[in-house]
Amino acid sequence: MSAEPTPFARIVDPLPYEDRLEARPLDQIDLVVIHCTELPDLATARDYGERVLHASGTGNCGHYYVDRDGSVHVYVRPQRIAHHVRGYNPRSVGIELVNTGRYPHWLSTGSQSMHEPYTDAQMASLDALLADLQHELPSLRFIAGHEDLDTACEPASDDPDVLVRRKMDPGPLFPWDAVLRTTSLERLLPRTDGAAA
Score class of each variant (00 low, 15 high):
37 T>H: 01
22 E>W: 06
51 R>M: 05
171 G>T: 00
120 D>F: 09
14 P>D: 13
193 D>R: 07
190 P>E: 01
125 S>R: 05
125 S>M: 01
26 L>Q: 13
38 E>N: 14
193 D>G: 01
143 I>M: 06
77 R>K: 15
73 H>L: 09
136 E>V: 00
43 A>Y: 06
8 F>G: 00
104 P>V: 04
142 F>M: 06
138 P>H: 09
141 R>G: 03
129 L>C: 07
89 N>M: 01
187 R>E: 06
130 L>D: 06
142 F>D: 04
190 P>D: 03
181 R>Q: 13
24 R>H: 08
133 L>V: 12
95 I>Y: 12
24 R>I: 03
151 T>P: 06
59 G>N: 12
148 D>E: 08
47 D>F: 14
110 G>D: 11
122 Q>C: 01
7 P>R: 12
39 L>W: 05
28 Q>C: 11
130 L>F: 08
120 D>N: 10
113 S>N: 12
135 H>T: 03
164 V>E: 04
52 V>W: 13
172 P>L: 10
17 Y>D: 02
31 L>A: 10
12 V>H: 11
25 P>R: 10
93 V>S: 03
69 D>F: 02
102 R>T: 15
110 G>R: 13
136 E>F: 01
47 D>V: 10
171 G>C: 06
89 N>V: 01
166 R>Y: 10
50 E>W: 09
111 S>C: 06
35 H>W: 01
146 H>I: 08
130 L>C: 03
36 C>L: 14
44 T>C: 07
182 T>I: 02
22 E>V: 11
116 E>K: 01
31 L>S: 02
63 H>V: 05
151 T>L: 05
162 V>M: 02
179 V>W: 06
55 A>P: 13
56 S>K: 14
103 Y>F: 15
17 Y>M: 02
104 P>K: 11
44 T>L: 10
69 D>H: 08
129 L>F: 09
173 L>T: 04
